[in-house]
Amino acid sequence: MIAPVAYRRAVRPFAITHGVRTRHRSGALRALTPLLALTLAAAGCGHPAHDYTIPPQALPEHETPLQGRTAAIGEVTYTAIGVRTKIPEVIGSHASWIPHGQYVRVRLLMVNHGRERHDLDPSRQRLITADGTAYAPSIDAMQISRAPAGVQTIASQEMRAFDLWFDVPANAKVKALRVLGDPSSSRLGDQLKGGAVKNAKNPVDISLT
Rank of each mutant, 00 (worst) to 15 (best):
I2D: 15
V5M: 12
V5Y: 12
Y7S: 14
R8H: 14
R8E: 09
R8W: 15
A10E: 15
A10N: 08
A10W: 11
V11T: 13
I16Q: 13
V20Y: 00
H24E: 06
R25S: 10
R25M: 06
R30Y: 03
R30W: 07
L32S: 07
L32M: 09
T33R: 01
P34N: 04
P34L: 05
A37K: 00
T39H: 11
G44R: 01
H47L: 06
A49D: 13
H50N: 14
D51N: 13
Y52D: 12
Y52T: 15
Q57R: 14
E61P: 02
T64S: 05
L66P: 15
Q67V: 05
R69A: 08
R69H: 14
A71R: 15
A72Y: 11
A72D: 10
I73M: 12
I73Y: 08
T77G: 14
T77M: 14
Y78G: 02
I81N: 12
I81G: 07
T85H: 03
T85Y: 01
P88A: 09
E89N: 14
V90D: 06
I91M: 10
G92M: 11
G92H: 02
H94R: 14
A95K: 15
A95P: 07
S96I: 01
W97F: 10
H100E: 15
G101N: 10
V104D: 13
R105C: 03
V106D: 08
L109F: 09
V111G: 03
N112L: 11
H113A: 08
P122W: 00
Q125D: 08
Q125I: 01
L127K: 08
L127G: 04
L127E: 05
I128F: 04
T129K: 04
T129G: 01
T133M: 06
S138K: 00
S138W: 00
D140P: 05
A141P: 12
A141C: 10
Q143P: 11
S145H: 02
G150I: 00
G150F: 04
Q152Y: 04
A155R: 08
S156P: 12
D163T: 07
F166P: 10
D167W: 07
D167H: 13
A172N: 06
A176I: 06
L177R: 06
V179T: 04
L180H: 09
L180S: 04
L180I: 15
G181T: 02
G181Y: 03
D182C: 04
S184V: 06
S185T: 09
Q191H: 07
L192I: 13
G195N: 09
K198T: 13
N199P: 00
D205P: 05
S207N: 13
L208F: 07
